[in-house]
Amino acid sequence: MEEQLKQLIDETLDKIKTASTPDELSGIRVSVLGKKGALTGLLKGMKNVAPEERAAVGKIVNDAKSAISGALENAESELKKNLRSARLREETIDVTLPAKKKDLGHRHPNRVALEEVERIFIGMGYEVVHGPEVEFDYYNFEALNIPADHPAKDEQDTFYINDKIVLRTQTSPVQVRVMEKGKIPIRMIAPGRVFRADEVDATHSPCFHQIEGMVIDEGITFADLKGTLESFAKRLFGEDTRLKFRPHHFPFTEPSAEVDVTCFKCGGKGCRMCKGEGWIEILGCGMIHPKVLERCNVDTSKYSGFAFGIGLERIALLKYEIDDMRLLYENDVRFLGQF
């Protein structure tokens, strides 16, 4: 019996060694350790063993059983490991093959620029408000201290619907609408579409966009206007940006200024983008004209304020180096896809 066992162990271990698939191994397991397996058969023969030897033989059989099942487990796990590594080898891919990309939509460059500007002013505590694009002459001109015979009102600049209604030529009428609500202090920006009777070319469009800004409070100064716009420009164009405030004239502000920033491409040395000047004009601003405040029933003995108007396209064209304004309204996806 002992010999039979030994032989069985040796034969089985040999078979295990040569087995190359999980199926073969499970076949061995069944044929040796299964209900009708060889070892099980041998165990059945135990009843013929003399009772005093049974303990010893039993141990031998059990040892054989655990040796075989141990060898099987080892072989199985070894085989599994080998198969897995073979599979991994086979599954190697060429990672340089092209990516599969889903089409993403893109924001219009105007929108990208607007969001940048809005974020900056919201961070400084400004509310974003809106006004109508088709506007009363009163709000667009008269309330802004632009009298009836002002050259800016000439038909060549303004689209008229009738005597009283125009397509707003600026976002400044929103200033008046906000002031009229009578709630002070005010910190607001008003982005929106404006219209001027300009023929379409690389730098003109009869529709374009402005962002109006206005602050009214006690003790607002021209120095505050400077500081605010400097903070804004540094955020938008970079910390090294410098500003130049040039005296200018707008009917609804006094004092008024136009603001240039150091060219963000060359940093002020002069390049093609700034036409060699080192500076680029980006906005107009000033202290709100006392007549405008008074007309809107703002107490000028208590309050003062500043206002500014930024050309959105100007920012977008400059910041993204777009050389032709017409591209903004063509909506070619090869253009839009770059933003």
Binding site: M124, R187, G219, A223, K226, G227, E230
Partner: peptide
């Protein structure tokens, strides 16, 4: 204009 200092609005706003 360049010699006017740069400050940020205070006030109640």
């Amino acid at each position: 204009y360049d010699k006017v200092s740069s400050t940020l609005p205070s006030g109640t706003g």
